[in-house]
Simulated assay, not measured.
Amino acid sequence: MSFQDEIEELESAEDFLQYFELPYEARVVHVNRLHILQRFHDYLDKGAEHLPENEEAQRAVYKQLLARAYQDFVESDAQTEKVFKVFKMAEPQTVFISLGDIQT
């Protein structure tokens, strides 16, 4: 089975962390599992064109990026890291409606 085939079999953040033999705190993963996986995906997307061809070298890069994504949430939290669009949305805006525009 190729490295890419093995990766496609992984489903959870815990699966990825265990596959790459990265130590982790269950508490951090439990609260941030989707954020960690999304950040990992984002890191992979940013460096996709620079990934090595060799599977062992790819595995090392993936491991490094996953460790970085996990560490982001050890040192911070989801609201601060703003991984998902919902956290990036601007605050609600105040809109002015004149009394003349209100019809009863």
Rank of each mutant, 00 (worst) to 15 (best):
M1N: 13
D5A: 15
D5C: 02
I7A: 03
I7L: 09
I7Y: 05
I7H: 01
E8G: 00
E11I: 10
S12E: 03
A13R: 00
E14V: 15
D15P: 14
L17P: 07
Y19F: 15
F20A: 10
E21Q: 13
Y24L: 01
Y24N: 08
E25N: 07
R27T: 10
V28P: 00
V28M: 05
H30Q: 12
V31G: 03
L34A: 06
L37A: 02
L37S: 04
L37G: 08
Q38Y: 09
Q38L: 08
H41V: 03
H41A: 13
D42S: 08
Y43P: 00
L44R: 13
D45R: 10
K46H: 09
G47Y: 08
A48P: 01
E49C: 04
P52F: 13
P52A: 08
E53I: 01
N54C: 09
A57S: 13
R59K: 11
R59I: 02
R59G: 07
A60I: 12
V61M: 13
Y62I: 06
K63V: 05
L65D: 14
L66W: 05
L66P: 07
L66M: 09
A67C: 12
A67M: 07
A67D: 15
A67G: 11
R68C: 08
A69V: 06
A69L: 02
Y70N: 04
Y70K: 01
Q71R: 10
F73G: 06
V74D: 07
Q79V: 13
Q79C: 07
T80I: 10
T80V: 11
T80A: 15
E81T: 04
K82M: 12
V83A: 14
F84K: 11
V86K: 10
V86P: 00
K88D: 12
K88Q: 15
M89W: 04
E91P: 09
E91C: 06
T94N: 11
V95E: 14
L99W: 10
L99F: 14
G100E: 12
D101K: 13
D101T: 05
I102F: 05
Q103S: 11
